[in-house]
Simulated assay, not measured.
Amino acid sequence: MIRIKARAPTARGAVLPTLWGAAAVGYKFGCPLAQQDGLGARIVTSAVFFAVGTGLIFHVRRALLRELRLARRAARAAQNVVLRPLPPRLDEIDVAAAQLSADRGASVGGDLYEAIATEHGVRVVMGDVRGHGLAALGTVAALLGSFREAAHDEPELGSVLRRLDRALARHLRERARAEHPANGAADPDNPVAEEFVTLLLLEIDRDGELRALNCGHPWPYLLSGTTAELLSCTDPLPPLGPFPLPAELESLPCRRLLPGESLVLFTDGAEDARDSRGRFFSLPHVLREVVHDHPVSPQTVLRMVFGALLHHTGGRPTDDIAVLVLRNGRKEAQLSGARSGSTARARSARHPWPTTRH
């Protein structure tokens, strides 16, 4: 569990309030003017106590702001450790990602993403934990830790999803015991029992073939040429947490991500963002403007999308927002070579022993 502990007040910080209080008490009982009942004396006494009270308020406010800055700094450090920056390139796939938290006090969100180059291809996860803040960050840490191991260990994408489901269930059980040690189990009235995570798993092979498993998460947008279309592969599964996974989990091929094409993964905070009039943010409209007016690099897409989001919400989003852009940076010749290699490996698997002519 991640905790941010405020520092205890020091003796040095209490010196100034003590001096102000001593000055006020000394004036009240030691100054002859304070003993008089005239209007002028009362005005002076009130001014003295008002000045002392105002000074104390400003001192307390300054101390609280200092503690808040320390808490924000610690939260950002925790966020950067859990949601680490992605490399700009993974196995010829250009990558760019960023997250915008609705919790402006601590800059901590409940969105998660990761992209890893493995022997099975580039594997990507994008998810959204219910809620935000430090409790959601703990769930993010549990899921990302499991994904970073399972992405390398499991040959099938369905097995990766099962590992994530077990990690989430274990994390929620431990959190429920920590919050309700007397019960020893999850309380139905406890928010932990209602925790769920929407999740999207993607796998990009060397030949650009896409496989996906979706647990209640928005499908990504495909940027191809000057078009931006929603990529929907299969019927999504329920979110992780409330319901068990089906017995059969098979990731089906969606399509091929051709050279120069991009995928834009996002959390629902992007499309649910509203302006002052209550109008929703139009992500596909912004993406079409991006591919029409600019070279489609992941950094360009990310910059334009977040700029439009902040302008639409007036700089105050009400939900966590994460965007991850993947672009196939391979050239056509490399892709053809990868396809030939895949075909040769498939033939070798079907005919492991060489034939001899007589």
Rank of each mutant, 00 (worst) to 15 (best):
G121H: 06
F196N: 09
T139I: 06
T198M: 03
D189Q: 11
R170I: 10
A186C: 12
V125R: 04
Y113D: 03
P181N: 04
L112S: 00
A98L: 10
R123I: 08
G138N: 15
E195A: 14
E156I: 02
N183C: 10
R130M: 11
V192F: 06
D187H: 12
L199Y: 05
L134N: 06
L112V: 06
H152E: 05
R177C: 00
P181F: 05
P188V: 03
S101I: 01
L134E: 03
A193D: 00
V140N: 01
E156F: 10
M126W: 02
A186F: 08
E156K: 09
H132T: 06
S107H: 14
T118Y: 09
D111L: 07
G131K: 00
S159T: 13
V140P: 01
A106H: 14
G110N: 05
G105V: 08
L172F: 01
E194F: 12
V108G: 04
S107L: 15
N190D: 15
M126Q: 09
V192K: 01
R166L: 14
A96K: 03
H171P: 03
E194P: 04
D94R: 15
R175F: 02
G158Q: 10
H132W: 02
V192E: 05
L168Y: 07
A167E: 13
A98E: 14
F196C: 09
E194R: 15
V129P: 04
A193L: 01
A150F: 01
P155E: 03
V108T: 15
G105M: 11
L172E: 02
P191E: 14
L143H: 01
L157T: 06
E154S: 06
E119K: 13
D165M: 07
L161D: 11
A182K: 10
T118G: 11
L199M: 12
R170L: 10
L172W: 02
A176Y: 04
G109K: 06
Q99A: 12
D103M: 09
D189A: 15
N190Y: 06
H180Q: 13
D153P: 03
T198L: 02
S159P: 09
E195G: 13
A167L: 12
V95I: 11
T118M: 07
V197E: 02
V125K: 05
A135C: 09
R170H: 08
R148M: 05
P191R: 14
V125G: 00
N183F: 12
